[in-house]
Amino acid sequence: MSQSISAQELRHRIRRGEHTGNTSGFAPGFVQGNLCILPRDWANEFLQFCQLNPKPCPLVGMAANPGEYRLPSLGADLDIRTDIPSYRIFRDGKLVEEVTDIRSQWRDDLVTFVLGCSFSFEEALLADGLEVRNVTEGVNVPMYRTNIACQGAGRFSGSMVVSMRPMKAADAIRAVQICTRFPSVHGAPVHLGDPQLIGVADINRPDFGDAVTIQPGELPVFWACGVTPQVALEQARPPFCITHSPGCMLVTDLPNSRLAVM
């Protein structure tokens, strides 16, 4: 399937089951988002958690009311129940299944949150001539649990998850400059260099996603990652929650250029 299709067409293909993999590199130019869906009585605390931790949890949209599964502010004919390639279902903080359609699990008390995703700033890196290794190798970006603590809010707390892209030092400096302009999609990196300093024991064994090649002379560069809420959910243990599967994002109609701070 060609990657250069519109966001709406990609959502339709996902809805029809024609695209089930990760969404990195697809529908270039459009914002991709992480998903979190919670019961109404957990929603306000999660919103506060996002507001207190904008690096890993940058909020780009949410449903105006419980039970709403169409988010017109994020895309035309967008159905949050069908338009993500893979969903994770959590019960009492434990992952119980991954599915491609959540219509059978939908409830009138569910509130949808969409958080910014690093796939948006990858496009800006590529446009500047920087290599993004997971795109080059055609795999999902590697993601790791860290010892970087998030600020707690009510029942939500936990440590940050980061994504990693290896770069030469000069490219890493340029990446910091570029990504600083995109605070709505995680902004500048949170760490460069020794992964053990942030609690990553084995860079070749990511907790989520796929390992990528790190060439001699390259630094691992770490960005805050939108999988962080899944760690917070594991600890908070809401009775029911739905997220995206790592790498399988909601592709919106919002242009990436709208997120840039000039």
Results as ranks from 00 to 15, higher is better:
D108Y: 05
G138C: 12
S118T: 08
L52Q: 07
L110P: 04
R81M: 08
T20W: 14
M62H: 13
S104C: 10
P166H: 06
V162Y: 01
D171Y: 02
A169G: 07
G154K: 08
W223S: 04
N140G: 12
F30W: 12
A260T: 10
A224G: 12
V190E: 12
M62S: 03
V141P: 00
R16P: 01
E234Q: 12
G29L: 01
E18N: 11
V185T: 11
S257H: 07
R13S: 13
T228G: 02
R181A: 13
D253V: 09
R81P: 02
P183R: 04
L110A: 02
T20R: 09
T20S: 11
I5Y: 00
F121L: 07
I214C: 04
L126F: 04
F30L: 06
S4P: 00
R258G: 13
L219C: 06
V190D: 10
P56D: 08
R107P: 06
Y144A: 02
T252E: 06
T23Q: 07
P72C: 04
P220R: 05
R81V: 14
R155L: 08
P58S: 08
I102W: 03
F156L: 02
G21V: 15
R40W: 09
R258H: 14
G116H: 09
D194N: 14
L126D: 07
